[in-house]
């Protein structure tokens, strides 16, 4: 059974794996952080927000305070998630679904348990 969890991620509950829902690439165990199976690129915010003047404070986030972490599907290059963190801050395990309870809930709803 396959369940869509985010815009770009599914979980195959039978195999308990994360999948890219654009190309079906397997990203790793659904009981772990899907980010482990992604490619990661650390980006300066000035690549996304235009810096206007040569001043300390600007129209883009300060690259010394803030980094953009882009998580890509290693197969199709889709950007699955973008995280904004100070440099070196622990990565967020953002979606940590109780897989056993999700399986039981869906089985109950489908009348198979």
């Amino acid at each position: 059974m396959r369940v869509q969890i985010t815009e770009y991620l599914d979980i195959d509950l039978d195999e308990e794996v994360w999948l890219c829902n654009r190309c079906n690439h397997r990203l790793g165990s659904a009981r772990e952080n899907y980010k482990y199976g992604c490619l990661v690129h650390e980006r300066s915010p000035e690549e996304i927000y235009e810096r206007l003047a040569n001043t300390d404070l600007n129209f883009a986030p300060d690259p010394r305070w803030c980094r953009l972490l882009e998580y890509y599907c290693p197969s199709c290059g889709l950007m699955i998630e973008c995280e904004v963190l100070p440099p070196g801050h622990p990565i967020t395990h953002d979606i940590d679904i109780d897989i056993d309870r999700l399986k039981s809930k869906l089985a109950r709803e489908r009348g198979t348990a």
Partner: peptide, 10 residues
């Protein structure tokens, strides 16, 4: 769905 969901703001 039961579980834990996280985000960090600054």
């Amino acid at each position: 769905p039961d579980g834990r969901y996280r985000h960090v703001a600054f």
